[in-house]
């Protein structure tokens, strides 16, 4: 059961990573990157590192996305 969950999470992770690299709209890329961070946080939790999961959920999902959105709001949205 946990194996199926882990495999699904890893598949979502790969899809998100490829999507961030390929998508043209920068705001969509930031949102996909945020989803990548959220899945990564759950994977850290599955690997038995809850403190790293906490940092990843706060920094990788929250603050990094907010800083990138701030950068987009200062520049152009299209690539």
């Amino acid at each position: 059961m946990t194996d199926i969950l882990n495999i699904l999470l890893l598949l979502f992770l790969i899809v998100c990573a490829v999507g961030v690299a390929h998508i043209r709209d920068l705001l969509s890329a930031v949102i996909l990157f945020s989803a990548f961070g959220l899945i990564m946080a759950i994977i850290w939790q599955q690997l038995g590192a809850p403190d790293i999961a906490m940092v990843e959920a706060a920094l990788g999902t929250g603050v990094a996305a907010l800083l990138l959105i701030a950068a987009i709001s200062k520049t152009k949205r299209a690539e």
């Binding site: 809850p50 403190d51 906490m54 940092v55 706060a58 920094l59 603050v63 907010l66």
Partner: peptide, 17 residues
């Protein structure tokens, strides 16, 4: 689990939000 870095990042994220 957690500590100064994790909690500080969560608190700072709320101010940035």
């Amino acid at each position: 689990p957690g500590g100064g870095f994790s909690g500080g990042a969560i608190f700072g994220a709320s101010l940035v939000l």
